[in-house]
Amino acid sequence: MEAATPPPGPLVVAISSRALFDLEESHRLFEREGIEAYQAYQREREDEVLAPGIAFPLVRKLLALNAAAPVGEGGVPRVEVILLSRNSSDTGLRIFNSIQHHGLDISRATFTSGAPTWPYVRPFGADLFLSANPESVRRALEHGIAAATILPAKAPAHRHNQLRIAFDGDAVIFGDESERVSREQGVEAFGRHERERAREPLSGGPFRGFLDALHRLQEAFPPGEDSPIRTALVTARSAPAHERVIRTLREWGVRLDEALFLGGRPKGPFLETFGADIFFDDSDENIASARSHVAAGHVPHGVANS
């Protein structure tokens, strides 16, 4: 008799305090005057609630999914958010006070007193790591963890209740082999390369595992317009290079609700139309286009970041 397949665990997202809250004033103080001034500043204001940061709406929507779907086996939530901070537990008191004030169901956290936070991502079993620290993100990616750099900013305006996540394809969901052909041999060679391999699945990129986990979470809800999660592929590819992408996702058994093949058009306006809560891309140029419209996470992976 075959053993029963264990139920999938929760989708786990690890996030830095600077991505979750607007800490830029105190961060500038730290850079200008040092750690002691920073510590005194946070202690004096530990009862002052921090304003939401760039990734706050994303986190709120993720945690809201626990109320919208039945919990997993044994009462395990569908989504868990972990806070990782370079603050000390002492100066981190203001952060936890702010978490409680905003009603965020975050109970697990690590405060490292200035040490890197990325080594704790894997022990927590995180599917995704969002941080304002580019070096932490790079190290996490090197260790096989889906990670992106979030440029700190105030939270964007609320637009809708549905969680909407958009991904670039090559070097994010997929490996960067095809992108290397494009950069090293040109667009015509890229098109020929993809036509010849249209039925050969692309390799998985650093965000394949997160995409799988997100897809499993989506399956806990009824499909269609009423689903609380909507996903999109937003890629510079165009026909005929689209076929390999479609066949790869079919081979993986992963659903993306929308697919935008833009043929090199700027991505920002399309992401705004989609209403992305966050967009992941490996290209600095695409991130710059996206950031003027939506929250964007830079994935420093692949040939574009060599």
Rank of each mutant, 00 (worst) to 15 (best):
F96C: 02
F56A: 12
V59P: 11
G103P: 01
G92W: 05
E48I: 15
A40W: 10
R60Q: 06
S98P: 00
D47N: 13
L29A: 07
E48C: 15
E44Q: 13
F30P: 06
R60C: 02
L62Y: 01
F30N: 07
A37I: 11
G75V: 05
I95V: 04
I35P: 08
D105E: 01
T91P: 12
F30R: 14
L29Q: 10
G34F: 12
I35S: 14
Y41M: 01
L63T: 08
E48Y: 13
D105T: 13
H101S: 07
E33P: 11
Q39V: 13
F56S: 07
E80A: 06
E36Q: 15
N97I: 03
D90Y: 13
G75Y: 05
V79L: 06
G72R: 08
T110K: 00
L83A: 13
E33V: 12
F30S: 09
N87E: 11
A40Q: 14
R86W: 08
S88N: 04
K61Y: 06
H101D: 04
V59R: 04
N66F: 05
R94A: 03
S88D: 07
P52N: 14
N97R: 04
E73M: 02
E44K: 12
I35A: 14
L50Y: 13
R43Q: 12
L62T: 01
S107V: 09
I106V: 02
R78W: 08
S98N: 04
I82Q: 10
P77L: 04
L84D: 06
P57F: 10
E46G: 12
F56T: 07
G53S: 09
L63G: 02
A69W: 08
Q39S: 14
R108Y: 00
D47Y: 15
P70S: 00
L63V: 01
A51L: 11
F30H: 08
S89K: 13
A67G: 02
G103I: 03
R32S: 12
E46R: 13
V49M: 15
I35F: 11
S107A: 07
V76W: 07
D105I: 03
S98T: 05
S98W: 04
I99D: 05
V49E: 07
G74W: 01
G75F: 11
P57Q: 08
S88F: 09
I82M: 01
D105S: 11
V59T: 02
S85F: 04
I106Y: 08
L29R: 14
R86F: 06
T91N: 05
I106R: 10
I54V: 14
E33F: 10
R86A: 15
E33T: 10
R32G: 10
V49Y: 11
R43H: 08
F56N: 07
G92C: 06
D105K: 04
P52L: 15
P57T: 09
A68K: 06
E44C: 10
A51H: 09
Q39D: 12
V71F: 09
I82E: 05
L104V: 01
